[in-house]
């Protein structure tokens, strides 16, 4: 997601700063799309966590006589799937899975990315070069090709899918962090820390990393979006999370063959994915503007 997004109107007043009324937070709040995104995600999370408890149907209950009921036609609000399971219940349960996959994969990929990036940026030289060439090599694989190749390695389950997605999406983070650390390293405070005899680990993670947090937060948000998308891609291609556990991606698997007779099978989960991913991208965009240090200096 390397899109250059224009900054929001630069009307940033230089009012006195308190911690919770910082310009960054105000800038984020002024970014209407980001607020919309945040609200949508909050709503989705609440619905997925509490929704299934309020529904009369279980997401795995099979009722073969009720198969292919269209939405709004009976007691199943959003209709049923080829096994007669309630789609709304499945969408909400799938949301739990897909969102958790998104967040967990993000966490893992950020962790890997930070470690590789910090080490490469701090040590530079041979270690740094070797690490960054490895990053470059990984980026030579188009992401789907890499996802598919690695998916052959694993037995599909929720944790392994998280790992799979994380393994293919840490490289951008590593690059961003490496660049930040490399430039921060020469700044006064870092030089000062070295002269005070701080250990390398301390300098890397206590002094340098906190100063690189802004781009990491942005990358993290975008990585959630990426992970949800990636999950849907591998599921669509048949290598994803296994039934009966629903995910937005595996609900779409096989939906193409019912496109004429039961289009809602394809439309609904896809719409959920698009909504979630768009929201995360909006938030990421808002965060980028909010945390942009150039705006801060104005």
């Amino acid at each position: 997601m390397s899109v250059v997004t224009p900054t929001s109107p630069q009307a940033v007043a230089s009012s006195p700063r308190s911690r919770w009324n910082s310009p960054a937070i105000r800038r984020f709040r002024r970014h209407k799309l980001a607020v919309f995104g945040a609200a949508t995600i909050t709503l989705m999370v609440v619905a997925c966590v509490f929704g299934p408890m309020l529904l009369p149907y279980n997401d795995t209950y099979i009722d073969i006589r009720q198969r292919f009921a269209p939405p709004f036609s009976g007691s199943h609000i959003l209709g049923t799937d080829p096994l007669g399971r309630d789609i709304l219940a499945r969408l909400l349960m799938a949301g739990r899975i897909s969102l958790s996959v998104g967040f967990s994969a993000m966490a893992v990929s950020i962790a890997i990315g930070i470690c590789v990036g910090v080490i490469a940026g701090f040590y530079q030289g041979v270690v740094g070069a070797a690490l960054m060439r490895f990053v470059d090599a990984m980026l030579c694989f188009p992401s789907i090709f890499l996802l598919l190749a690695i998916s052959a390695l694993i037995e599909p389950s929720v944790p392994s899918i998280v790992l799979l997605i994380a393994m293919t999406s840490w490289m951008e983070v590593a690059r961003v962090v490496e660049a930040q650390i490399r430039s921060l390293r020469t700044r006064d405070f870092a030089v000062a820390a070295v002269s005070m005899g701080a250990s390398n680990t301390r300098i890397m993670f206590r002094e340098l990393l906190p100063n690189a947090i802004a781009p990491i937060v942005v990358a993290a948000t975008l990585n959630v979006a990426h992970a949800i998308l990636a999950e849907s891609y591998i599921s669509f291609l048949g290598y994803g999370i296994q039934p009966p556990t629903p995910s937005w991606g595996n609900m779409l698997e096989g939906a193409q063959s019912y496109l004429t007779s039961a289009p809602w099978l394809a439309i609904l989960p896809g719409a959920a994915i698009t909504l979630a991913v768009t929201s995360f991208n909006f938030i990421g965009d808002g965060l980028r503007d909010a945390l942009d240090p150039r705006l801060d200096q104005r």
Binding site: I62, P82, L83, P156, Y239, P244, G254, S257
Partner: peptide, 12 residues
């Protein structure tokens, strides 16, 4: 994986 009918059969 990816054989929708078999997966349905399995769950049944």
């Amino acid at each position: 994986t990816g054989n929708a009918l078999r997966e349905q059969c399995q769950q049944l």
